[in-house]
């Protein structure tokens, strides 16, 4: 596959309010750089992320979607991230079925104290999505930028 050097992927990150969003804030406070491609949507808990949102993002032209939640056992709502984990596992098999590379979706645990991990994760994910190239399979062509 030809890798387009100038390809700048659109990456949607869902971050839970209590751990990962705070982790993202911490990486900001510590001035830890990660690519501008990543845009964060704040959700109360990672379990608020409906797989539908992920598919919607791919349909609208996102090249990668990352969901970040509290570490297992640390969920502010006790058990939310366990639901997320199961749902994303199921989503993976559906993405495989649809022919969307499963590496375009990632689930990561980032605590409020892990600013460095947040930045490193986003850096790595952006690189991985860049290597995968643009998302073509589910993209609604009517949504494509001219």
């Amino acid at each position: 596959m030809q890798v387009n050097e100038n390809f700048e992927p659109v990456i949607v990150a869902f971050c839970c309010n209590w751990c990962s969003y705070a982790g993202a804030d911490l990486s900001g406070t510590n001035r830890l750089n990660y690519p501008t491609n990543v845009k964060i949507i704040r959700v109360p808990c990672s379990c608020r992320v409906n797989p539908m949102f992920i598919l919607r993002a791919f349909q609208k032209g996102a090249d990668g979607v990352i969901i970040c939640g509290c570490h297992p056992g640390d969920c502010h709502y006790t058990s939310g991230n366990y639901f997320t984990r199961r749902r994303i596992t199921l989503l993976y098999s559906m993405l495989d079925f649809l022919g969307i590379e499963r590496d375009r979706t990632r689930l990561e645990w980032v605590s409020a104290a892990e600013g460095a991990k947040f930045a490193a994760t986003m850096q790595q994910f952006t690189e991985d999505v860049k290597a995968l190239g643009p998302n073509r399979r589910l993209e609604d062509l009517r949504c494509r930028k001219q």
Partner: peptide, 15 residues
């Protein structure tokens, strides 16, 4: 954090 609100955010980012 309604479904429509989060969808609107997704759309705005991907626009």
């Amino acid at each position: 954090f309604s479904n429509s609100q989060i969808m609107a955010e997704v759309d705005a980012i991907c626009k």
